[in-house]
């Protein structure tokens, strides 16, 4: 039998290394170009180090005199994240299944995937600003902003889990004379449920983080106070707010990790 694959000739090797060199060259050109655009100025860090030190000193000691308000607003922030996530999960279940190419024909999953892409591509902050205009200042605008972005993300993640299932059990359910919906309920969902729960918990964690900033554009929660404190140069209060955020977010991360372990 003749060999079908020939060893690479020296020519080919030389060509490949040239291409590699050009590739790296291009990469560095882009980096240098972006240095200009981003106005990178590491010297400022050193030159203004005394300024920075004074600025940092303003943060300490943190001023917890309004801690009751901070806690109340932090709870509102978590509540925003909770509702934004739950609404997104409810919508992402059907949409995720309709995005899966092993469940529906292309003319269903292609358009729905594009809509989900659109939901994902715009940041929650932008949606928050739009909803503040639409439904007014307050937490509800934040819920809606998180809801839309999270639906886009979860639908994609849910669909990826569905596309990785074993088709066997689905066929087993189909063979009993079940309807298409029943095939999904009994054949698909039991297989993907652990992953879906895990993704949802993870999105809840990131939504708590996002909910702290949507407040900055007026969409409720601790972000509103944080923005006021920063604008008022009240850095001792800012520091206290940041500590509250860190503590609550870490606490929720730990709880949701514990929960996740139960399901996997």
């Amino acid at each position: 039998m003749t060999t079908l694959t020939t060893a690479p000739t020296p020519d080919l090797i030389a060509k490949r290394s040239w291409l590699q060199l050009i590739g790296w060259g291009l990469f560095f050109v882009v980096l240098a170009w972006s240095w200009q655009g981003a106005e990178m100025n590491p010297l400022a860090l050193i030159r203004d180090s005394s300024n920075m030190a004074t600025f940092a000193a303003d943060f300490f000691p943190p001023d917890f005199s309004d801690w009751e308000l901070y806690l109340k607003e932090m709870i509102v922030t978590v509540q925003i994240a909770l509702w934004g996530t739950v609404l997104a999960i409810v919508l992402a279940i059907p949409l995720g299944i309709l995005c899966s190419e092993n469940i529906v024909p292309w003319w269903v999953y292609q358009p729905i995937r594009r809509v989900m892409d659109a939901c994902r591509s715009i940041n929650e902050m932008v949606f928050a600003m739009l909803f503040v205009v639409a439904v007014g200042l307050g937490p509800f605008a934040g819920v809606l902003a998180l809801f839309i972005g999270t639906t886009g993300v979860l639908a994609k993640l849910f669909a990826e889990a569905v596309e990785a299932i074993d088709p066997g059990p689905v066929e087993g359910v189909r063979a009993t004379g079940a309807s298409a919906l029943q095939e999904v309920i009994y054949g698909v969902i039991p297989q993907v449920l652990p992953l879906w729960i895990s993704y949802s918990l993870y999105r809840f964690e990131s939504n708590v983080r996002s909910a702290t900033v949507v407040g900055m554009v007026g969409a409720g929660g601790i972000g509103v106070i944080l923005w006021e404190a920063i604008r008022g140069f009240q850095f001792a209060q800012t520091c206290a707010l940041l500590i509250v955020i860190i503590l609550v977010v870490s606490l929720l991360d730990i709880i949701s990790q514990r929960l996740r372990k139960q399901f996997i």
Binding site: G168, P169, E171, G172, V173, A175, Y186, G187, P190, Q191, L193
Partner: peptide
Amino acid sequence: FQQFNLVGR
């Protein structure tokens, strides 16, 4: 089925 195709969970 050869692979039983039960819903494992």
